[in-house]
Simulated scan of single mutants.
Amino acid sequence: MSNFSKWDELKGVIRPNDRILCLIRPDPDSIASAFALRTLLLRRVESVTVAYDEPSKRLQNRAMVKLLRLSLESVKSVDVSRFTKIALLDAQVNRFPDYRDWTFHLAFDHHPFIEEYPYLFADIRPETGATSTILAEYLAAAKVRISERLATALCYGIKTDTDDFQRHTGRADAEAFSRLFPLANYHLLQSIDQSEIPFRQLDFMDLALHRLRVKKRRAVVHLGAAEAADIAVIIADFLIRVSGIEFAVVAIIAGDKLILIFRSRNPRRHAGRIAFNHFGEIGSAGGHAAAGRAEIPLPQVPSEVKVFDFDSIEHWIEKELGRPVKTRAQETNPS
């Protein structure tokens, strides 16, 4: 289906009196995508509000919001009943298990299709490297003027989710970036990128390097507890670049969840499928070939596992990864 057809389809479900809530798990791609959808629809509906389900503590996300002067609200501070439609950006319903009783109407995502859901409209493209790419295509189809701030946000969303075009990148991502980059502020992009690792989090890097054990080119490391999982993402991205490591799992406890970050550079070890097949029954899990994630509520962790014991968590993850499972393959978008 062409971009113009998808845009026409989306227009068919939008009403002038709609008040739309965009729900995101804040990262550069979801933030940029949400503000792109806001720009796309703002003159066609009554209002568009962007809300996050949990605050982002990662410096690059906060720098992006601050430098680009973007307005985000906590979903806990909004009255959901006043919205006529709820849109998911860079996510599907499985990413928001706490809101299963809500009705979601729109979904835009580049992650593998997880489950059937009766959205009014959905555009889910696992072959695309970033949701920012998808929304950039809608802006082009609708001939919407893209501001410098929005172009910068979308460029950064594409840049981060494709890891500077080193993983899961399609032609659409390169084309979108080439259209957006001349409109973006290069200095702002640099400023956001340089706000990466808080000094106090270097302790986690030290811990990871001291605990690092590699078996059959696979590294599994538990970092203990932290305010957020962002440092686990940074360390997983670092480990997968180390010679001799083809698959990495970094675990961390953030809030009331055990979060596992998966990275792979072995085509036969699909990070998202491994996360989904081994941990999807006790939490939210999935991802792409090179990058996956599982979020497991602490009460769902098996009782024999001591969640605050580094060895216990690492041993359990190794055991689970070595356990044969019936493949619970993530489907592609049937449309």
Rank of each mutant, 00 (worst) to 15 (best):
T160W: 06
D161R: 12
R167C: 04
H168W: 06
H168A: 13
H168I: 02
A172Q: 12
E175T: 11
F177E: 05
F181N: 06
F181H: 07
Y186C: 08
L189Y: 11
Q190M: 13
Q190F: 14
S191K: 15
I192P: 03
S195N: 15
E196Q: 06
E196F: 08
P198M: 07
P198A: 08
Q201W: 10
L202S: 09
M205S: 07
M205Y: 14
D206H: 14
L207V: 13
A208E: 14
L209F: 06
L209E: 05
H210F: 05
R211W: 02
R211H: 04
L212G: 00
R213C: 00
R213D: 00
V214A: 00
V214T: 00
K215R: 05
R218H: 05
A219G: 01
V220H: 02
V220L: 03
V221F: 04
V221D: 02
H222S: 14
L223W: 07
G224R: 15
A226M: 07
A226R: 06
A228Y: 04
A232C: 08
R241G: 14
V242E: 01
I245Q: 00
F247V: 02
A248T: 10
V249W: 06
V249M: 05
A254E: 14
A254T: 10
G255I: 09
G255T: 12
D256F: 12
D256W: 12
L258T: 11
L258E: 10
I259W: 07
I261G: 04
I261K: 14
I261P: 00
F262E: 13
R265P: 04
N266H: 04
P267V: 06
R269W: 09
R269F: 05
A271Y: 08
G272F: 08
G272H: 10
F276E: 10
F279Y: 09
G280V: 13
I282P: 03
G283W: 07
G283H: 06
S284K: 12
A285Q: 12
A285W: 09
A290L: 00
A291W: 02
A291R: 08
E295H: 08
P299Q: 05
P299L: 12
P302E: 01
P302I: 01
S303E: 10
K306N: 11
K306Y: 09
